[in-house]
Design a protein around this nucleic acid. Structure first.
Lengths: 156, 156
DNA sequence: TTTCCTGCAAATCGTTTGCATTAAA
DNA sequence: TTTAATGCAAACGATTTGCAGGAAA
């Protein structure tokens, strides 16, 4: 939050109400929110911020390295705060969309190694595991993932 | 090709001209073609197949487990034939979009292990490494990825 | 004031769908 | 003939963009 204000001031950009609430929405979210989640959350608090502004602020936050964008193949993107959390990978539930994390410094190193072997300069990597979480297995051991349009909360 | 015909006959579905050419376009492509690539390729051969039919055929090929869909974050999907090729992961060039493969039975096992640790039932995983390929490094050691709208060949 | 932002609506772009027409079996 | 597929154009859904009006510095 403070880091974002500093980032903006450092390059002479205005610190607006909208930028503050959108940043807060991502920083203080449980985790991995979609643009829909952010809008819903803000509306619930009585804040109204236009979609375009949400997208523009997310872009700013990314270029400031304060959040990270993810695409888990749901048809829309999710965002997570980067502050003070080490590198980690994601485990995604195909039924409810819940996202868990697991550490992997080790894979970071392996990726670099493999890139080297192919002569590539390593930039980043993605390791995602898709499956069915314990709760969903218990709930219905056979069902398949229902389509999830971006409207309500998708987290958990 | 033959497997696709068999798959169709087995469920009483017509083996049409369009299905054959679209399937061939993916099977015999160098690799990892987009819908745009497929259309272009067919047009070049004088074949005209509607976009909708291309998408519908790709869906069929996927449910027959003959091709695999990928999303490398370019804004559109790519498809690769699954025939006779072992499990492998992808190394993607951020500048030219070129895709290389590397084997990884080992990571298949690791994914299952990690899923187990979290109580998830493992379904599939994704391990992708993004970087800059040797040619692009040589060409211009500092440039960044240009946006790539889906029009022409994206492969290589 | 000046400059940069915001909100809205329109535009984009890949992908999907409805429906009248046409091709397989 | 019967049944299912095709092609076109319209619909979709997330994201982006143009622009008139509004808020920071």
């Amino acid at each position: 939050m403070e880091a974002f204000r500093r980032h903006l001031r450092d390059r002479g950009l205005p610190v607006t109400q909208q930028r503050e609430v959108v940043a807060a929405a991502v920083f203080f979210a449980e985790r991995h929110v979609s643009v829909g989640d952010i809008e819903q959350g803000l509306l619930r608090q009585g804040e109204h911020v236009g979609k375009a502004t949400v997208y523009r602020t997310l872009e700013l936050l990314q270029s400031a390295d304060l959040i990270q964008e993810h695409d888990f193949g749901e048809g829309f993107k999710r965002y997570e705060p980067l502050a003070a959390r080490g590198y980690h990978e994601h485990l995604i539930c195909l039924r409810c969309g819940r996202v868990e994390e697991f550490a992997s410094e080790r894979f970071e190193r392996m990726s670099t190694l493999i890139a080297d072997e192919h002569g590539f300069r390593h930039h980043h990597h993605r390791w995602e595991i898709y499956g069915v979480c314990p709760e969903c297995q218990r709930r219905d051991p056979t069902a398949r993932r229902p389509p999830t349009p971006q409207r309500e909360e998708h987290e958990r």
